[in-house]
Design a protein around this nucleic acid. Structure first.
Lengths: 359, 359
DNA sequence: ATTAGCACTCGTAGGGCAAGAGTGCCAGCA
DNA sequence: TGCTGGCACTCTTGCCCTACGAGTGCTAAT
């Protein structure tokens, strides 16, 4: 069932208007604003049809129309014009990204703050959940009972831990541990770190004081942390500004849901192939988000690892602007993280990059 | 003006009841519940006096009484019984603290989550703002154009950064840089890192490719970051459950204020000498928090550095329970961070530890 | 196919009313 | 002198009712 050109224009007008005002939009308004040279009565007829087709709905008999999830879907897939970012916006993003490209560890969640700032919706960041491994170990001998473990992971993040010992170790021992760990604990996943491996390492270092176990525990810890995927939410307070979250119960339900990292991680559902994914209202798996929309953008974290940066808002979300900003940020992040990353100067703006998600 | 024993009991009853129910409390209720063997009429007389004394107020003529900030102050200072934590509670905290004592860097904000969990109010953590210095540098040579900077700071936290270079360096150069930085960049504050120092370091290493500047920039960055103090908020969504934040505008104002790290940092006002500080309503400097209360507990982060962990809630906050939990957590944190830290098995429960803050 | 006109529906805002909770005060009692 | 029971008073809250307005759907005319 193909929509006539005029229906498309009207639908787009309704969505645009509703996104802007959060009020049901009436026929008269469209007649004036849409540029169509027809009367409100004609619009009414069209609206009635769009309603029976399931793209629009009426909160009550005598109110204007509001887009349904299906209506938003069409809008996102076909109607919306991916907004081009203004010069100031790209500059603001670039500047902030530069500022935040520091401590690798914190970078990603910092970028979440940036996304929240720019879009005015709460933003979330997910680091790649991949079975990562340790690429290399370095043990830094500080003094006779202190050393630092530095581990570089397969995704190029670096983790460290300071170890205080209740007894002293010699520098040579630290050296030996370092050699052994680099030989037998690199390139393996958390699951592969077995007690057998540890005790074999203990034998080769001659460690009788449990140092091997300490380092192995650290390795397990950071790998499982990595595997469990870091998820963070920024700018949660922004939800409260939105008229759809004026009901504190509703706001609380959503915010509470989003403050659990576990939930954030499950949010995208299955993995996805596109660069950008838009989940509209009921397309979300989580019951708590049935009234909300989520826009997710993928970024490359180097070495084939990927992460997600996203934004949560009401179904009446400014899809085109948010999508554009998110793509741009994700691309910048890719570049920063993988050195090469973004294969496009600007993320390919256009309809093609947005794929339907629910069939 | 000293309060009679009975007035104290009545005031305490009003506060306790109001904390529990968030509803203005009436004379009849107190007559029944307080244990005083007097009629509601007598209570009414006392309430009237407490009201003229400024400890209670009436939302309107025919409603029950609600404590004023002054009333809470008396309650906190003199009336309240510092709640003793139950066996389960201390165990829950101990278990969680153990779980979270890992990556030094993240520990503190993780503890914030714990505090939010335990108290059911949003929690904040502030790390010590102290002019820290770098204790030692280590440069780990990864490959010909990659190395890792590891810096251990005076507060024993360890920071790292991965550096990718567009050109190659030799291992010997990295070594040299390491030596020079350890010689001339340790033990100095951010301000003392001058262009002169950098160029002198450049001369001694023979670095012509700006590596010195990169490392110096990293040093400046982590030191200023440290100095600027990390602040984090956890469990912001918990605010929305509270009846006093049913008004989304109010909730938004407070949450927005709290999500700015800068604001969090200014929250305690001047530094304070006690272990525990209670700021009630208007005692807060920030306009946005005039209707809220803040409870802060200090912890030792080793080397004489201190941090703060706190909780934000309505003035009708469960002071005694929150204060107890916070003290306990702060003490645990002190122990974890400074090795020794807590000088008491349990943080000294009792009235003495709470000092008045506003005179 | 479009339009103007009109009756109809339904949510929202405002006014009035009754109920209930809690107070303040007074007069009587130990 | 201090406590108590009683009672009139105040004020909020919830409720119903009404009037209003926005927006629709339909019909008849172009």
């Amino acid at each position: 069932m193909e929509l006539s050109e005029r229906k498309k224009k009207i639908l787009a007008a309704v969505v645009d208007e509703y996104i802007a005002t959060a009020e049901p939009v009436g026929s008269k308004h469209i007649a004036e604003k849409s540029g169509l040279e027809v009367s409100s009565a004609t619009i009414r007829n069209e609206l009635a049809e769009l309603t029976t087709m399931g793209y629009l709905q009426q909160p009550h008999t005598s109110a204007g129309r509001v887009p349904t999830a299906q209506g938003y879907r069409i809008y996102v897939n076909e109607l919306m014009q991916m907004q081009k970012l203004s010069e100031e916006e790209t500059q603001a993003i670039n500047r902030s990204l530069d500022d935040r490209l520091r401590q690798l560890d914190r970078l990603v969640s910092d970028v979440g703050k940036l996304a929240a700032e720019m879009t005015n919706y709460p933003a979330l960041t997910l680091t790649a959940k991949a079975p990562s491994t340790v690429k290399r170990f370095d043990l830094i001998y500080v003094d006779s009972n202190t050393f630092i473990i530095v581990a570089m992971l397969s995704d190029n993040t670096v983790k460290n831990k300071l170890v205080h010992l209740p007894f002293s170790v010699e520098q040579s021992m630290v050296q030996k541990l370092s050699t052994v760990f680099n030989a037998s604990f690199t390139g393996i996943t958390e699951e592969q770190i077995s007690p057998i491996l540890i005790s074999s390492a203990e034998r080769s270092t001659g460690d009788t004081m449990g140092l091997t176990a300490v380092i192995a525990a650290f390795a397990i810890e950071i790998l499982s942390e990595e595997k469990a995927a870091q998820a963070a939410l920024s700018g949660g307070a922004k939800l409260l500004q939105l008229p759809e979250f004026r009901d504190p119960d509703k706001a609380h339900k959503v915010m509470d849901y989003l403050s659990d990292a576990e939930h954030l991680y499950n949010l995208p559902g299955m993995d996805f192939g596109d660069d950008l994914k838009v989940l509209i209202g009921p397309e979300n798996i989580a019951e708590e988000l049935k009234d909300s929309s989520v826009i997710l953008a993928k970024y490359n974290a180097g070495d084939g690892m990927q992460g997600i940066i996203g934004v949560v808002g009401p179904t009446r979300m400014d899809y085109s602007s948010v999508a554009a900003k998110l793509s741009y940020i994700a691309d910048g992040l890719s570049k920063a993280l993988s050195g090469s990353g973004g294969d496009k100067a600007l993320p390919g703006f256009g309809k093609l990059m947005i794929k339907d998600t629910n069939e």
